[in-house]
Amino acid sequence: MSSSFDRYQKRRLISSYFSVVISIALVLFLLGIVGFLLLNAKKVTDFMKENVNVTVYLKDTAKDVEIKQLEKSLALADYVKTTDFVSKDDAAEAMKSEFGDDFMDLVGYNPLQNSIDVKLKADFLTNEKLEELTALAQEKSFVDEVKYDESLVELINSNVKKISFWVLLLSAIFTLIAVLLINSSIRLSVYSKRFTIKTMQMVGATKSFIRRPFVWKSIKLGILGAVVALIGLGFVVYYVDKMFPELALRQSLVLIGGLFLAVFLLGIIITWISTHFATQRFLNLKTDQLY
């Protein structure tokens, strides 16, 4: 008879832990997704930014040595990602294949100029930097002009700012929801033990001694929830990698590992802090205030 009572008690306990673990897991999973989004948003915008072309057009009078020297000095600058010399013949070829017919037949000569295509590193793609680059290049007498799409640069930059603001806001809201949800689940499970806590105080146990097993138990639940969340997150990453191989997720395994670790630690920290405060609340109450 007593064993069935024990089983009943145990089952009740397990189901209440179950809901705590599930809520921790769900919240951490969502947080992980937002974090994953945040990581890859940077990658996507970086990819876009590093594809913006700055073209330095050269006069036909420019000597090969001068061109080589300019290309080298540009390539060595810390804000430049790649430089690529495009001769007027290459440019004509490219244009031909793009438009389908040979415009040179029409014009009779090649009107294009030799040029150097410069691509900047994502972090340096600002209008100030581009103006600096322009000024630098135009100091040389053999440079005709420097062209880039000013409005495109502005568009990218302002959108990135907007998007990262919203994603950050979203993750802040998610974190807050996470803390509140986990907090209330833990509060409930501590609340059900409030008389036990009081009794422990009556026999001379210090607050930290009483709190320790509660915190430890919650951390274990937090770890369990985090593991469940990470398994879910693992599946998501796996499928995103399969569907969008251009994100090159395999090359940022360290970052993804860092994200997983952060989610795991967050699970521990949030449950720890919540339990600390939830038990503290009941530890500080007098017996009469419990009812």
């Binding site: 008389f195 036990t196 009794t199 009556m202 026999v203 210090t206």
Partner: peptide, 20 residues
């Protein structure tokens, strides 16, 4: 308070044993 209670023995009407 915990250290005071260690020097006292308290017995309650409702026993207050840890039921778990």
């Amino acid at each position: 308070i915990p250290f005071l209670r260690r020097k006292l023995g308290i017995v309650f009407q409702d026993f207050k044993l840890l039921t778990d």
